[in-house]
Design a protein around this nucleic acid. Structure first.
Length: 398
DNA sequence: AAATCGGGGGC
DNA sequence: GCCCCAGATTT
């Protein structure tokens, strides 16, 4: 986390001068750079959201032909509007673009407003686009933080904030404000964009050609590829269970030992029945009892009813050796719910409570055991099981 | 904070 | 096939 201290005035000035000069000599020739007209800048920035420059160019040129001025955009028929965007994706962008054009006609006399607050008030213009318009079109020293800027600046100053987190944006915003050229903010911001697109690329950056190599702390530390820090969205798979807290007449609970391999191996839990998300949600509201195939998530279905209690035979049949059960009564409502996040999946577990009044004292298999609550601490419980026990014991059902 | 919105390019 | 990319909006 050893970020570089702020530069002194002299170094900052040299950096700004060199960086802007590099841009002025090496900038990419792009259609929207032939003008400083705010409308053109705006349209280009909206098109460029999550979209590559090469893709945007023909769309931009046609769009400006079809809708040369804001009033043309504001008055455009929807089919023509969508046609202009056809193939670009994120079609809400163009709908918001027109809404904003109509906002400008109504509230700003057809002229793009200049202040960052007014620009931000327009539909479809978020923090990035507002900063881009303010700086590029109106030459105001406003940051325009996108993935590009975060990549360049994370390397330049070895900023370790996770760029995947929305909250990290303000860290980069602050740092850009410190070093942005007060004289040429338009060129400065676009210099970052060009650098990020052509030199300071996500993979295999071309540091040997970088104009700000001497200022780049990651480069000095030979650590460029470590930045930016971006935590992978490990999309966790959701798994739904019903945990069965079954109690016999000796007040013992049925526990199961998990398999010797895999997740939570050899640890003890209440019998867990995997169910579909829908079954889970149904039971959450109070189940009607169910049938279960332990090898496959199942829908719940009504078996029998007796006042508030439901007898469920089929669940028992799916338990290992559970045909010993004769008289198992379930409470209609789940008595608890827990979630637990593993590295790659998230458990949702509803806790069902049942009482066995037949010969449930029998030991079913060697992977199962009847254990009184006061003896739970003699077994190894994984975290989710601990959470379930906590909820069970807080229920005062026994 | 997470889901959603589209399509294309890179590996 | 998966990840990444000049984001904003909704939930």
């Amino acid at each position: 986390m050893s970020e570089q201290k702020a530069w002194d005035k002299e170094k900052k000035g040299a950096f700004q001068q060199e960086f802007v000069q590099w841009y002025e000599e090496n900038q990419r020739i792009l259609p929207w750079r032939a003008t400083h007209e705010p409308y053109a800048i705006w349209v280009s920035e909206i098109m460029l959201q999550q979209t590559r420059v090469e893709t945007v160019i023909p769309y931009f040129n046609r769009f400006m032909e079809w809708f040369p001025e804001i009033k043309d955009l504001a008055a455009a028929p929807e089919d023509k509007l969508l046609k202009a965007w056809e193939g670009l994706g994120y079609y809400s962008r163009v709908r918001n673009l027109q809404k904003a054009a109509q906002q400008i006609m109504e509230n700003f006399a057809g002229e793009m407003p200049r202040t960052i607050e007014e620009i931000s008030s327009l539909k479809g213009i978020g923090p990035y686009t507002a900063g881009a318009i303010a700086s590029i079109a109106f030459n105001q020293p406003e940051p325009a933080i996108d993935g590009n800027v975060m990549r360049v600046f994370s390397r330049l100053f070895r900023i370790s904030a996770d760029i995947a987190k929305p909250s990290s944006r303000k860290i980069f915003d602050q740092r850009v404000r410190e070093v942005i050229s007060p004289d040429k903010p338009s060129e400065f911001n676009q210099a970052i964009m060009d650098l990020g697109a052509t030199i300071c690329t996500p993979t295999s950056p071309k540091c040997e050609r970088c104009p700000i190599q001497n200022y780049c702390q990651a480069y000095q530390e030979d650590n460029v590829t470590a930045y930016p820090v971006k935590v992978k969205k490990t999309k966790v798979k959701k798994v739904y269970y019903v945990a069965c807290a079954i109690q016999n007449e000796k007040q013992e609970f049925l526990l199961e030992k998990r398999p010797a391999t895999g997740l939570l191996s050899n640890m003890w839990t209440f019998p867990l029945i995997e169910v579909t998300e829908q079954a889970y949600l149904d039971y959450q509201k109070g189940w009607q009892s169910y049938t279960v195939d332990r090898n496959q998530p199942q829908q719940l279905s009504l078996v029998a009813e007796e006042e508030d209690m439901y007898m469920i035979k089929t669940l028992v049949e799916e338990l290992e050796g559970a045909d010993h059960f004769e008289n198992l009564i379930w409470q209609k409502q789940p008595i608890g719910e827990i979630t637990h996040i593993f590295s790659h999946l998230k458990w949702f577990v509803l806790l069902a409570y049942g009482r066995e009044t037949g010969n449930g004292r029998l030991l079913l298999t060697e992977k199962q055991a009847w254990v009184r609550a006061e003896n739970f601490d003699q077994l190894v419980f994984p975290k989710p099981q601990q959470k379930l026990v906590q909820q069970l014991l807080s229920n005062k059902l026994f």
